[in-house]
């Protein structure tokens, strides 16, 4: 990270970007805490069973096996969380790079997985027929998708499903988030502080398609 234009890249979105980083970090730490809690309980259970065995109690081998399987399952889970965190953390390394919009959308959906789960909302990505690759600042793009998704989650009824579709056409590149049943024309009033600066810094703009309950992030 030795680009001299750091301030010009992130200056305009300073607080908004920090808030994004904080929310993602908090969500990840919560997920990891849950993984640790499961490992902790299964390790404790093995201790309990070992102690009981020392006192002559019969131990069900199947129960031991299930506890051991939990270790490998939770390690895989933690590995997935940390891979996402690592990819996210490294997104500030480059200020401009070719970015696969579908991969970035998938990353943001993974990072927002717990937020969606809290609202019982399912996130589904519709992959494009061909890769949609744009030149962008990866961190700003992630922040933009996050804000769009956050708005969508807050304005969608519980237990519904949101679809995210990266699209490329003659008119440009966009990400369409569909299924927002609380979407209204005055959506821009409900956007979080800093969104306008982020849109400006990303050279992007938002539009709504109320008939299809869709928020569209147009990317230049």
């Amino acid at each position: 990270m030795n680009n001299p234009d750091t301030s010009s890249q992130y200056g305009p979105i300073g607080e908004c970007g920090l808030r994004f980083f904080g929310k993602v970090s908090a969500s990840i730490s919560h997920e990891i805490k849950n993984v640790l809690a499961i490992i902790n309980e299964n390790a404790g259970l093995l201790e309990d069973l070992s102690f009981a065995a020392q006192r002559g109690a019969a131990i069900d081998p199947e129960r031991l096996n299930r506890a051991c399987l939990q270790f490998s399952k939770q390690i895989r889970r933690a590995d997935g969380i940390i891979k996402n965190m690592n990819q996210f953390a490294h997104s500030v390394d480059q200020f401009a790079a070719p970015v696969d919009l579908c991969n970035t959308t998938e990353l943001v959906c993974n990072l927002a997985g717990r937020l969606a789960a809290m609202r019982k909302i399912t996130l589904q990505i519709i992959p494009p027929h061909a890769p949609v690759v744009i030149d962008a600042n990866p961190f700003l793009l992630e922040n933009l998708i996050w804000l769009g998704l956050e708005y969508a989650l807050e304005n969608t009824s519980e237990a519904l499903s949101l679809t995210l579709a990266p699209e490329q056409s003659d008119s440009g590149t966009s990400l369409r988030i569909t299924g927002i049943d609380g979407l209204s024309e005055d959506f821009s009033d409900k956007l979080p502080a800093g969104c306008k600066d982020l849109l400006s810094a990303s050279n992007a703009h938002l539009a709504v398609d109320t008939a299809h309950k869709a928020l569209i992030i147009h990317l230049s």
Binding site: N34, A37, I38, E41, N42, G44, L45, D48, A52, A67, Q70, K73, Q74, A117
Partner: peptide, 16 residues
């Protein structure tokens, strides 16, 4: 707790 694996194992340990 919504983490099934957590709550079931903790329950088992408390029963012990």
């Amino acid at each position: 707790d919504d983490e099934n694996e957590f709550v079931t194992t903790l329950a088992e340990r408390l029963v012990i």
